[in-house]
């Protein structure tokens, strides 16, 4: 089974996020970058499908600056075979979801694949659009929030379980298709040391805008970005005994928090 996995490098969820001077993005210096966790599920699923089929290849596609190679190497260490790294400063300021999908579509267009896997959304901007736009651009069906995937023996169709509010839906979809990975789809593996060593030698093709023959303009522009307000310090309810404390609590909830 041949698959393509789109992956994005995002700040580690624990890293310290600062808004840049213009207020339109984050300060990228000093940030610890990792592969977006939903993309890990996507990589893992691609690997499992390949292992199950007993043949095929997993190709990674990622868009971003030089540092993105680390996320690519991580996925290669997990077992992916090759990677395309679209790296062009021309894209840097323009990569909104539509632009990103356009670039990825151009990079994937000529590949042979039975499925394209993406994370259900990137852990940083949470837009969750790229996979759907990509499907549209490539003329493929899209199934989002996949938690289980069964591919038919002839690789022409797949039975997909996806999460819906309060339950699950089972969908038959013709392949190739774009599938986005939800938590629960699998447990991503921890790259083995031989995997890490091998990943250093696996081929990564770097492509520029010119190579792909695309130019993009963003359809959306971030006007401003702010951090959530700092958490207020808690308030200690004082009182001589539990009755007094209960009265004080009720008063605080009513007058200060205006909850009751």
């Amino acid at each position: 089974m041949n698959t393509v996995v789109c992956l994005k490098q995002v700040p580690d969820t624990e890293t310290l996020i600062k808004i840049n001077a213009e207020g339109t993005g984050i300060v990228t210096e000093g940030v610890k970058w990792v592969m977006s966790p939903y993309d890990e599920f996507a990589v893992e699923e691609a690997l499992r499908q390949k292992e199950k089929a007993g043949a095929g290849s997993v190709t990674l596609v990622s868009l971003g600056p030089d540092r993105v190679i680390e996320a690519i190497r991580t996925a290669l260490a997990m077992g992916a075979d090759t990677a395309v790294h679209v790296n062009d400063p021309a894209f840097a300021a323009k990569a909104d979801p539509y632009a990103t999908a356009t670039v990825l579509a151009a990079a994937i267009k000529d590949a042979t694949y039975d499925a394209i896997f993406c994370g259900k959304q990137a852990m940083d901007d949470d837009a969750g659009q790229v996979a759907s736009i990509l499907g549209e651009l490539l003329g493929l069906p899209v199934v989002t929030m996949v938690t289980k995937l069964e591919v038919s023996a002839d690789k022409k169709t797949a039975t997909v379980t996806r999460e819906v509010e309060g339950g699950q839906a089972i969908i038959d979809v013709p392949l190739p298709a774009v599938l986005t990975a939800q938590k629960g789809l699998n447990e991503p593996r921890y790259a083995s040391l031989p995997g890490i060593m091998k990943a250093k030698k696996k081929p990564v093709t770097v492509k520029t805008a010119a190579d792909l023959g695309v130019s993009v303009e963003p359809m959306t522009i971030i006007k401003s970005m702010t951090l959530p307000p700092a958490r207020q310090a808690g308030k200690k309810i004082e009182g001589d005994d539990s009755d007094a404390k209960a009265v004080a609590l009720a008063k605080a909830l009513h007058e200060e928090a205006k909850l009751i």
Binding site: E14, L16, E187
Partner: peptide, 24 residues
């Protein structure tokens, strides 16, 4: 390895501590 250990390794790799709390 016991599956709980994976986040510990990741924490050490990404934030240099087994609790996975931001290195900053």
């Amino acid at each position: 390895f016991p599956e709980e250990v994976q986040v510990v390794f990741k924490g050490m790799e990404n934030n240099s501590n087994p609790w996975s709390i931001g290195a900053h």
